[in-house]
Each structure stands twice: as structure tokens, then as C-alpha cells.
């Protein structure tokens, strides 16, 4: 595979190959569901996730696994596999948005205050502590309820904004340590501007840790979206998400447990995979930082 592929792909393969077996499997799982979510519209014979065949005489509700419906149907006779795949879009969109918001805004903010210190740090961190003092779920429920609209964009943005303080804390802690390193002191000694030191020395050294944290917090976000959906506060029906599916199926739990099992397994595998890959990444980047 070597010479035909671009170097970055070869690097990725090398990294993948160096992973422990479990981490390989986790990475494979995450890659698969991300690709499935992105290309769901092009998967041949994948049913419309909102199609209720029982209304048109083609399917039955709460059907078991079959060749036609590999994972069975739900209480509205919709194809569970299709809804799982399309539901991945919601879970991952919320997770990616939260990670992006957190990493970018939280990472920058934390790095900044960790480097500049002083009153600005005290003021910003005090504000962040106040936000963090509220139970996250309660704050989230309040914001979502007040906004009224509950589509994917709103949910993603709300979760993303609420993620910022957590990232800010992590990046500040790392920025504090990095700011005391010799190369930062050296840069100061030769009269380098603070802005340059921040962008060239501090942030690049803080980001690996923030990214490792992002992978772990993405797992938390996936669960959070599921919780919101279970409470009826995530995307509105008929848009599928794993939490929405679990919530919808609980009324029929005693007669058909599969519509709860499948999305729950998706949640478990995805959260475990994100945690596992996040841990691996953290260990790997921690080693590199120390090597500096």
C-alpha cells in the first residue's frame, strides 16, 4: 500500500497498526458508524427511517428480526436498522458540535487565562466556576425549554456552548504548566510578544491534552443527547436519535425489548469506543509532551 497512497494516509495506517487490539476495534467501530451516518442516503435498500409500513399494509409493528428488517421494526413498524443509522447522525452531530465549540472557544479561553494570569484570569475563571456550579443537566433542560425550538441545530449549539467551561478549565490547567516551561521563559527573555508566545508555544502544547479530553467528553455528550432525547427534549419526532428510540420503545418494553436493546448497544459501543480511543490518545500525547 505504500507508494500509491498519500503520506498522511500511510501515517494513519501506521498509527492504527500501532494501537492495541481493543483500540483498533474501537477505532474501526467509530469509523464505521461515522461513515454510515454520512453516507446513509446512499446505502442501497436502506429503508426510509420514517416509513410506517403498517399504514400501507406492507409491514407490522414490533416485528422481530427478518431478512427484510434485519433488526426488526418498532411500534410504528419502522425499520430499526435504518433509524439506528440515521439516529447516529443526531448523536454524532451533537457530539462533534460540542467538541468543536469546546475545543475552539474553551481551549482558547483557557489557554489565554492560564498564560496571562492576574485579574483577567480571576474574573473569567470565577464566571466559569459559577456556570459549572449549576448541575449541567438542569441547566441544559432549562435552556432547551426556554428556547422552545428543539431541532438538531438548537440542541447542538446549546450543548456546544455549555461544553465551553469544561474545556476552558482543562486547557487553563495545562496552560499554567506550559507557561512555566523553559521554552516559554526563554521566549519571554528574548522579548517575544505575549500574543506570539500564546499562539506559537502555549496553545500548540495545550491542544493535545484538550483533544484527548474532547474524545472523552464526546462520549459524555453522546450520553447527554440520549438523556435529553429520553426526556423528550432533544430532536422532535419523527427524527430518529438513539435516545428518542429508547424513549419511544419503553412503552412496549414488555412485549418487544429489541427496539430498546439496539440503540442502547449503539450507545454503549460508541461511548466505550470514544473513551478507549480518548485514553489511548491521552497516553500517547502525554508521552510526547514529556519528551519536550
Amino acid at each position: 500500500m505504500s507508494s500509491f497512497l498519500p503520506s498522511w494516509i500511510r501515517t494513519m495506517f501506521r498509527v492504527f497498526w500501532a494501537m492495541p487490539l481493543v483500540t483498533k476495534l474501537c477505532t474501526f467501530w467509530l469509523t464505521t458508524i461515522i461513515l454510515a451516518a454520512i453516507f446513509a442516503d446512499f446505502i442501497p435498500k436502506l429503508a426510509d427511517p420514517s416509513y410506517q409500513g403498517f399504514l400501507f399494509g406492507t409491514d407490522v409493528t414490533n416485528d422481530g428480526q427478518s431478512l427484510h428488517h434485519w433488526l426488526g421494526t418498532d411500534n410504528n413498524s419502522r425499520d430499526i436498522l435504518s433509524r439506528l443509522i440515521y439516529g447516529t447522525r443526531v448523536s454524532l452531530t451533537v457530539a462533534v458540535t460540542a467538541v468543536a465549540f469546546g475545543t475552539f472557544f474553551g481551549g482558547l479561553l483557557g489557554s489565554f487565562v492560564g498564560y496571562v494570569r492576574g485579574r483577567r484570569e480571576a474574573a473569567i475563571m470565577a464566571s466559569i466556576d459559577v456556570i459549572l456550579a449549576f448541575p449541567a443537566l438542569v441547566l441544559l433542560l432549562t435552556v432547551v425549554t426556554l428556547l422552545g425550538k428543539r431541532n438538531l441545530l438548537v440542541i447542538s449549539l446549546v450543548v456546544g456552548v455549555l461544553a465551553i467551561p469544561y474545556y476552558a478549565r482543562v486547557s487553563r490547567a495545562n496552560a499554567l504548566a506550559v507557561s512555566r516551561r523553559e521554552f516559554v521563559a526563554a521566549a519571554r527573555a528574548i522579548g517575544t510578544k505575549d500574543r506570539t508566545i500564546l499562539w506559537r508555544e502555549v496553545i500548540p502544547n495545550v491542544m493535545p491534552t484538550v483533544l484527548a479530553f474532547a474524545l472523552v467528553s464526546a462520549a459524555v455528550t453522546v450520553v447527554l443527547e440520549g438523556t435529553l432525547a429520553f426526556l423528550g427534549l432533544s430532536v422532535q419526532p419523527p427524527t430518529p436519535s438513539w435516545g428518542v428510540m429508547i424513549n419511544a420503545a419503553r412503552a412496549d418494553l414488555r412485549i418487544n425489548i429489541w427496539p430498546v436493546i439496539w440503540p442502547s448497544l449503539m450507545l454503549v459501543f460508541t461511548v466505550y469506543s470514544l473513551n478507549n480511543v480518548g485514553d489511548w490518545f491521552r497516553i500517547r500525547t502525554a508521552h510526547k509532551t514529556a519528551a519536550l
Binding site: 399504514l55 411500534n75 419526532p237 420503545a249 412503552a251
Partner: peptide
């Protein structure tokens, strides 16, 4: 959940 399921029948 059952009412949501019923609403979706009407919606479809």
C-alpha cells in the same frame, strides 16, 4: 411514548 407514536401515525 404511546401518544408520540399515535401522533406520528397522523403525521405520516
Amino acid at each position: 411514548p404511546t401518544l408520540i407514536a399515535a401522533m406520528q401515525v397522523s403525521q405520516v
